[in-house]
Design a protein around this nucleic acid. Structure first.
Length: 553
RNA sequence: GCGCCUGUAGCUCAGUUGGAUAGAGCAACGGACUUCUAAUCCGUGGGUCAGGGGUUCGAAUCCCUUCAGGCGCGCCA
């Protein structure tokens, strides 16, 4: 459709001596009211400024060049200030159905990625405690973003960055050490700035089971590395397990420590120094991030000779690009937003474009129960873990709810609503439609109705699909590929739940008013074919969300 | 003090990147199961798009400003 319009408009532009249209300026919109056609475009109006002509005149020029006669267009109108309204022949909708049902898994898969290599780095929680609910939102967003990019033809890698360097690791090891001593009856004044969560006590019990009492009263310095390793390994193991239960897996678990071990931090700083982006001052080494728009320069090596976390992050991002990724997506908590400008500056200093890095910020999750906030105190080490949430409401509901908001706006997550098997819960609404559709085919089979296309046979005669409701349904189905492209281009996975809701609601309405398995064989066949397509697209979209599409509920 | 984000129906939020009469869900009220799943559907009410100014054919969307809320501003990670 877009190609056709562009083809009609371009010659007009050439005669006026103007450059060809950028593709984005020919936009097809689905109007709100049916009188405005199946599609509409505002090209005429956006051109009017360049051409210095009235929009309606341009519109009629464009319309004259549209190949109405032998195309999928039934009618073209000019309306309002210069909208071009396009009415599509039913055949066009039928073609969409065939496209879907002949390649159910391929439908919606696009090629805009063109095999470009993209890395999505997400969760990356410090291995100092179990994942909490906020990490869950990041996990769902990252995983689905990766699914979307894959569907759009990108070559995607999922990575978890393990912050296993720095003094927080020593703190972790010491925390375990103190809990262990406590367990063996020592009187310990547990230090304030250490990890005091309940999980640390449990870890001490496990440690004792494996190591016995041999470390009782041993000096901390002597045994710390072992305690640190044990704690980090166990906690990371738990994180992996929780993520697996949540349906999230990674291609690569990248250790921060490995960067230090390869001297990557030093190498990166040297490279930046050679390029003139690093200087010494006040005994420290600085990265001149102000060159690239940051508000002040940043220390990379402190006066005491120790490199900063940011220095490691520079090395890490250099490493990512060295591994051949064209684009890198980082998913961070929104409280890190102040960190974005310096990271962008770093990326540019490393010789990449700003657009080679995209940071998705994840806002807070407010956990509610029955509309009331669940008290969470990180200071006391008490928080609701991701695992507890999954165990209570299930993976599907959790994933879906995490994705029903734009990631940069805060999310209220009500445990009671997520569990509710009712219309208050958006997950069931969508899943129910899939189950309902599945059930139709089951009944069809019981009645001996043959759906040949399901076994690779020809589609039935689709001409009975003529009603406005059917057209609306088919148009929505046809929108799905465009939706995925939008999600990928704007890094916005939340559009999928909204799309699904609209598709499913249109279907439920249709289902209530029309009998799919009716008296008339031809109508039944055509409607079953439509139902097949609806089920395919719902299943497809749910698969991208990582939410189960049930046959029965 | 500076910076980023947010402000849309009673509540929670969308709004296709500047388009036509601003949309959903929940909550409220009234209806629909002898039928392929009522976890559904149909209908009703509900708005100064935080306020003000500007840009233009056209603004919830872009610019300026005021107000309100959240977050961030370390040689921490």
């Amino acid at each position: 459709m877009i190609d056709m319009l562009t083809a009609a408009v371009s010659p007009l532009l050439e005669t006026e001596g103007l450059p060809a249209l950028p593709p984005s300026s020919v936009e097809l919109v689905i109007p709100k009211t049916p009188e405005h056609g199946d599609y509409a475009t505002n090209v005429a109006m956006s051109l009017s400024r360049h051409l210095k002509r009235k929009p309606r005149d341009i519109a009629s020029e464009v319309v004259k060049r549209l190949p109405v006669a032998d195309s999928i267009l039934a009618k073209v109108d000019i309306a309002g200030p210069g909208f071009i309204n396009l009415f599509v022949k039913p055949d066009a909708w039928h073609r969409i159905l065939m496209e879907i049902n002949q390649h159910p898994d391929g439908f919606g898969r696009g090629t805009i990625g063109n095999g470009k290599r993209v890395q999505v780095e997400f969760v990356s929680a410090n291995p100092t405690g179990p994942l909490h609910i906020g990490h869950g939102r990041g996990a769902a967003t990252g995983d689905v973003m990766a699914n979307i990019l894959e569907a759009c033809g990108f070559d995607v890698q999922r990575e978890y960055y393990i912050n296993d360097a720095g003094n927080q690791m020593d703190t972790l090891g010491a925390s375990l050490y103190y809990r262990y001593q406590e367990l063996l009856g020592e009187k310990i004044d547990f230090p304030d700035n250490h990890y005091r969560g309940e999980y640390m006590k449990e870890l001490a019990v496990t440690f004792r089971e494996e190591a016995g009492d041999q470390y009782l009263r041993k000096p901390l310095q002597e045994v710390l590395p072992m305690f640190t390793k044990f704690a980090a390994d166990s906690i990371l193991g738990g994180i992996r397990e929780d993520l697996a239960v949540f349906g999230v897996s990674f291609d690569e678990w990248f250790s921060e420590r490995s960067l230090h071990e390869q001297d990557a931090v030093t190498t990166t700083i040297t490279a930046l120094r050679t390029a003139g982006h690093v200087y010494d001052s006040e005994g420290a080494t600085w990265f001149r991030s102000t060159t690239f728009g940051d508000e002040k320069d940043r220390v990379v090596i402190r006066a005491n000779g120790v490199s900063t976390y940011f220095a490691a992050d520079l090395a890490y991002h250099k490493n990512k690009y060295d591994r051949g990724f064209d684009t890198v997506i980082d998913i961070w908590g929104a409280d890190h937003h102040g960190y974005v400008p310096r990271m962008m500056a770093g990326v540019e200093a490393l010789g990449r474009k700003r657009t080679d890095l995209h940071v998705i910020l994840i806002q807070l999750v407010n956990l509610l129960r029955g509309g009331k906030p669940v008290a969470m105190s990180t200071r006391a080490g008490e928080f609701v873990t991701l695992r507890e949430v999954i165990d209570e409401v299930g993976k599907d509901a959790a994933r879906y709810i995490f994705l029903t908001r734009r990631s940069d706006s805060p999310l209220d997550f009500d445990l009671d609503v997520a569990k509710m098997q009712s219309n208050e819960n958006p997950v069931y609404y969508v899943q129910y439609a899939h189950a309902r559709l599945s059930s139709v085919f089951e009944v069809a089979q019981e009645r001996g109705i043959v759906c040949g296309w399901l076994q690779g046979g020809e589609p039935p005669d689709l001409s009975p699909l003529r009603s406005a409701q059917e057209a609306a349904l088919m148009r929505l189905l046809g929108e799905y590929p465009q939706l995925l492209t939008n999600c990928a281009r704007n890094y916005e996975p939340h559009l999928i739940p909204y799309y699904l809701h609209e598709l499913v609601s249109t279907f439920h309405s249709y289902y209530n008013q029309n009998r799919i398995l009716g008296e008339d064989v031809d109508i039944s066949q055509a409607r079953l074919y439509l139902a097949t397509a609806v089920r395919n697209v719902i299943g497809n979209a749910l698969a991208i969300l990582g939410v189960h599409a049930p046959e029965k509920m």
